[in-house]
Nucleic acid binder design. Structure first.
Lengths: 232, 232
DNA sequence: TCGATTGCTGCCAGTTTCTGGCAGGATAAG
DNA sequence: CTTATCCTGCCAGAAACTGGCAGCAATCGA
């Protein structure tokens, strides 16, 4: 029996038993040595399976490795498909692929009557024209995820070119325009940068302090305050 | 990369493409030789995957495989959330609600480490400003779903006001502008109507003949032909 | 405290599998 | 016929897998 087959079987065994299964049991069921089971478990975990092992008990599969069946209304499917289409047409390649992958996974766990709704093409999002932007969304995403600082070269509205270090906290989409928001070390304040004015983006190795979520909160509070001021 | 990982990846690639994928494509995407792809396909089939291969076309994954897809990646969640956000901010209330409901259902099956990614607000879609449009997307959606005709009052570019009966086949989103596409009984041709020029929409009780899918195909073919002509 | 149970890791050597390349066959479309 | 594709057999080198053993760690109950 091939290793792939065995991994597949192990998953099934673990899914079947809700209670912990000892490695010895798995070894017996799979017809393989205990040592190999330990390695297989490690491989499955590397594949993303959430298998918990406790000394004295055994292994349990936590939910969340495989996508369970999902049920949606027709309209919900259409909404998801339209949203995924927008992402796949308006953002960068990597994100576009993620959107299509996600939709494909949803399609795979849908009851068959609903599946065809996914590519129903009743709605159509225009493809974003290739724009010569220096902003690589992948870098920005990575920076936001890992809380890294970004170094950008920015041409401000007056035409002056500055190099700034910012703590990126979000990207906003206004139609086809993109705005990068973050804390600017130079200004010591929150700033929004139009993507088409950013000439260069570089991921810095150092991180910014605090959590991004908290930065977002502070930024929101400030934006709200500004808005109230504008209304007064 | 391990073989098991590759097999999972292949499944996902096949899921993503609804159309046949050639072995060469798979080989390129998986970073492995064509010969290996043939062996992998055979292995997957042995595991129970229903993969059909036709000479001259490629491989297609038939739905109904016993192994559900892997859980979403962080990026896929982000892509879904962003897409749903776009729908909820750029379409009508009913659709917006559907998008949020769908996202909530997805959130319900996510393992806890992923769940927070759903409202991570790293990406922000601008809210579409309220526009005085007579086009009620709900009516259009209903008409498309049930293949009903629509009666619209349209103000054409020259300012002339006409009442037309159209067979609606799709709605396109160009930034915040919306275009209703359909077959126009008056012109006996496909026409695109800017939503901001439509003054009234009424659902007619009679249906149009043929399936909407076929209409879409004919329309696409025509658009492609026009595009080629424009390039010449 | 001690033993029993279980998870987990390192090492090693023999075995197995995997992989890519090549050659060739088959099928269908244009 | 030509092209694109699927598919199989064969081979040799590379890579992995596997089992056994030894040992550590955590937990439970006696």
């Amino acid at each position: 029996m091939s290793k792939s087959q065995r991994l597949f079987d192990l998953m099934q065994i673990l899914r079947r038993h809700r209670h912990p299964v000892s490695g010895n049991n798995l070894a017996a069921e799979a017809g393989v040595s205990l040592r190999t089971i330990y390695r297989d478990i490690a491989d499955l975990q590397a594949l993303g399976a959430q298998i918990e092992g406790e000394p004295g008990f055994g292994y349990v599969l936590q939910p969340g490795f495989l996508l369970p069946p999902l049920m949606f209304s027709e309209q919900e499917i259409q909404a998801l498909a339209l949203g995924a289409q927008w992402v796949s047409r308006q953002t960068d390649d990597e994100f576009a692929l993620a959107a299509r992958d996600a939709l494909a996974k949803i399609g795979a766990v849908l009851p068959s009557e609903l599946r065809h709704r996914i590519d129903d093409n009743a709605f159509h999002v225009a493809r974003r024209p290739k724009q010569p932007e220096a902003v690589d969304l992948r870098i920005v995403r990575q920076a936001m995820r890992d809380q890294h600082k970004l170094s950008i070269v920015y041409r401000d509205p007056k035409g002056a070119r500055t190099t700034r270090t910012i703590w990126p906290i979000g990207v906003a989409f206004f139609d086809s325009r993109r705005i990068l928001a973050g804390w600017c070390e130079m200004r010591k304040d929150f700033r929004a940068f139009r993507a088409d004015r950013i000439e260069k983006v570089r991921l810095k190795t150092d991180r910014y302090p605090g959590r991004r979520r908290d930065l977002v909160k502070r930024w929101r509070a400030q934006v709200d305050a500004d808005r109230r001021k504008a209304v007064d």
